[in-house]
Design a protein around this nucleic acid. Structure first.
Length: 440
RNA sequence: GUGGGUAUAGCGUAGUUGGUUAACGCGUCAGUUUGUGGCACUGAAGAUCAUCGGUUCGAAUCCGAUUAUCCACCCCA
């Protein structure tokens, strides 16, 4: 095929055979979020670039090299120096929208969730796309470790509902600005002594963000990092207590976790708790959920000092995991009735019957291809119609037709008179019931 | 930004040391006589073998470049 345009690199088309899987995930995400009292929030796909620089962090990779589609703002309101950017994540936009709409004046905690697409200009690979989708949740107002635990529980509960297993939860605390500063100093001193052996990127990290070196995959660096000072030893009393309480709460809820001091997160706004859920079977990009607390961000964006926290899940990675593990998706709905017709008068009858039944909420189809009876029946089978009905001269004359159960082959006479809808729906709904009973 | 791999109908693949009409499965469409799908059978449509250039009497096959795409690094969901 020689199309004049192909889809942009790193994007995916969601064809019907794939889209129904997304419906499952989206539906269960919404249901789960609502069980925990989260309400959906929607916000623009693009924001002023400044928002991401201020929140995600000027020095992060996401802002420095992955900002996708930065484009000029029209000059009408004069704030044009940074233009707009397609959102690389959801927290920044959520916080902005929550503040701008005064949601923090409502009952606390304020809990919102979203299902969005995000954009990052990276080289695509397994589990990483330039346009990808997230299910995220954010909570504002609570500084209690119970909130951290609740959020983690919700993420876990959601994955359980999807039928995903074998996902490991790692937690860590990266402290507050006060204790982190001390830790940074100690860490820097440690790496400074061993500077010559570090890889080139890590040498650069030494000044900007020494914690990143802990995360380095290079065997040499990770060897050095193994004996580096651990953040948990530097936490101030408040941060330490917060972390201890979180662990207690997780244990009470029966959620298994490992403390992993190397979890750092690449976004600047995190404080105290950070966590990741990691899958083992979807390739190198295995973090399917990441999140943490960001107690300073609301204030940093011009709002009142408000503790907050959240997580985001990668929907593509989630679905990939489900596929690998053979998890069930909610099956696609099937056509309730296919009306096959022979002759022009019968075709008209099909039209009016279909209209009546569709008004009652049924999925009804009839021939649009000018096919013969046999071909119409074949089509009915292909689309998975539960019932079919043939209308020809005889049926018109008798004012009734046989309703054929495509699964059993059974044919039931049905009249086109006043009781038509009611009789039809009794048969069809009854069959749907017995079908589900059979499956159980 | 840095590596490595791949490129043949809508999808999945075969194509032997270069040799003439590029094969197969799935899918699509139409038939297998008279008003009924699934199974089987028959047939049809559908590919300038990613593109451009080179080697050769001859290239899907060898070489080069380009493009696309995949995986990995980096980073993250």
């Amino acid at each position: 095929m020689d199309l004049i345009v192909k889809r942009p690199y790193g994007t995916r088309d969601m064809v019907p055979a794939q889209a129904y899987k997304w419906h499952t995930v989206e539906k269960l995400a919404m249901e789960t979020a609502e069980q925990y009292g989260f309400k959906e929030i929607r916000f623009p796909t693009f924001e002023e670039t400044k928002l991401f620089k201020r929140s995600v962090g000027d020095a992060t990779d996401v802002v420095q090299k992955e900002m996708y589609g930065v484009f000029a703002q029209s000059t009408e309101n004069g704030k044009d120096e940074d233009g707009f950017t397609l959102r690389p994540e959801g927290t920044a936009g959520t916080v902005r929208a929550v503040l701008e709409n005064g949601l923090l004046n409502e009952a606390m905690p304020q809990k919102v969730y979203y299902i969005i697409s995000c954009f990052r200009h990276e080289r695509p690979q397994a589990g990483r796309l330039r346009e990808f989708h997230q299910f995220g949740a954010e909570m504002f107002g609570s500084d209690s470790p119970a909130a951290d635990a609740e959020l983690i529980a919700m993420a876990k509960g959601f994955m359980d509902r999807l039928g995903i297993s074998g996902v490991e939860l790692f937690i860590n605390s990266i402290g507050c600005p006060v204790c982190r500063k001390q830790y940074h100093a100690a860490l820097k001193a440690y790496f400074e002594e061993r500077k010559d052996n570090l890889c080139d990127t890590c040498k650069g990290r030494l000044d900007k963000n020494p914690m990143r070196i802990l995360d380095c995959k290079s065997p040499v660096c990770s060897g050095i990092a193994k004996d580096a000072p651990v953040i948990l030893d530097f936490l101030c009393d408040e941060c330490r207590e917060h972390f201890e309480k979180l662990k207690e709460n997780l244990s009470v809820m029966g959620i298994e976790y490992s403390v992993n001091p190397k979890i750092v997160r690449g976004l600047d706004y995190y404080t105290k708790t950070v966590f990741e859920f990691v899958a083992s079977d979807i390739g190198a990009q295995s973090t399917i959920c990441g999140g943490g607390r960001y107690d300073g961000l609301v204030e940093q964006l011009g709002g009142p000092k408000t503790p907050a926290l959240g997580f985001a899940m990668g929907l593509e990675r989630l679905i990939m995991t489900m596929e690998n593990q053979g998890c069930d998706f909610i099956p696609e709905k099937k056509c309730d009735l296919y009306i096959a017709s022979m002759g022009e008068a019968a075709a008209k009858k099909a039209l009016s019957l279909a209209k009546e039944l569709r008004d009652e909420g049924f999925w009804v189809e009839y021939d649009l291809m000018g096919r013969g009876l046999k071909a119409q029946m074949k089509y009915a089978d292909k689309i998975g119609a539960a019932f079919s009905m043939v209308i020809g001269d005889n049926e018109l004359e008798n004012n009734g037709a046989n309703l054929k159960n495509m699964r059993t082959g059974e044919q039931i006479p049905l009249r086109f008179d006043d009781g038509f809808i009611e009789n039809f729906s009794n048969i069809v709904v009854g069959d749907m019931f017995s079908d589900t009973m059979n499956n159980i």
